[in-house]
């Protein structure tokens, strides 16, 4: 019961501040994390050494990055040792096959779809240029690519994940996006993302 409560808390608390309960992180994941961090550390050290040194070594631009890279490598090594001691090597195959493919398949697919949609949303806002002006006294009401694409994409995401009717999704998204735009553009005088 206690474990269930802890897990539900973890699932809902913001990732940035709440710690992730260690029972949810397998030693295999720790080993994978250590390997990735170790690689990053070595790359950092390599590129730090390639930076030019205009003054003395004490003021070298690569000094702190190199120290950080070296200590990061040490930390990755310690994490890897702890993970191996906790049985990472013996559980690695089991975790990757049973958990990743079979147990998480549906949620993982939904997550992948969501990630693709978010990336597409950002790229569309960046590259599609729409600019309608509706004359209102005393100003022109502007409808730009940010609003149009936001309404389309968020409506689509809502339709998939919320499963409300299309009209409901469209209405909610339109009200939110237009409210945001009005507050930012006309309330605080901030340009919208599509402007540049």
């Amino acid at each position: 019961m206690k474990t269930q409560k802890n897990m539900s808390v973890e699932e809902t608390t913001p990732s940035g501040s709440a710690k992730c309960p260690e029972e949810m992180i397998s030693p295999g994941k720790n080993l994978l994390g250590a390997a990735l961090v170790g690689l990053l550390a070595m790359l950092t050290m390599f590129f730090s050494l390639r930076l030019s040194v205009p003054g003395s070594l004490y003021t070298a631009p690569g000094l702190l990055p190199f120290i950080v890279g070296a200590t990061l490598l040490l930390m990755a090594f310690i994490l890897a040792v702890q993970a191996i001691q906790a049985g990472a090597l013996s559980n690695l195959g089991k975790v990757s096959i049973s958990s990743s493919i079979l147990h998480w398949s549906e949620e993982a697919q939904r997550r992948l779809l969501l990630a693709v949609l978010i990336v597409a949303y950002v790229l569309l806002v960046a590259f599609v240029n729409i600019d309608f002006r509706i004359p209102f006294i005393p100003f022109n009401y502007q409808i730009s690519s940010y609003e149009v694409i936001s309404v389309i994409m968020v409506t689509y995401i809502l339709k998939i994940f919320w499963k409300g009717s299309l009209v409901q999704c469209l209405l909610i998204t339109t009200v939110l996006v237009e409210s945001l735009t009005i507050i930012f553009r006309y309330g605080f005088g901030i340009l919208m993302p599509e402007t540049f």
């Binding site: 949303y121 936001s150 968020v154 994940f161 998204t173 939110l176 930012f184 919208m192």
Partner: peptide, 10 residues
């Protein structure tokens, strides 16, 4: 959650 996305971009 989807409604937070436009806020993040803005």
């Amino acid at each position: 959650m989807p409604l937070i996305l436009p806020i993040c971009i803005l």
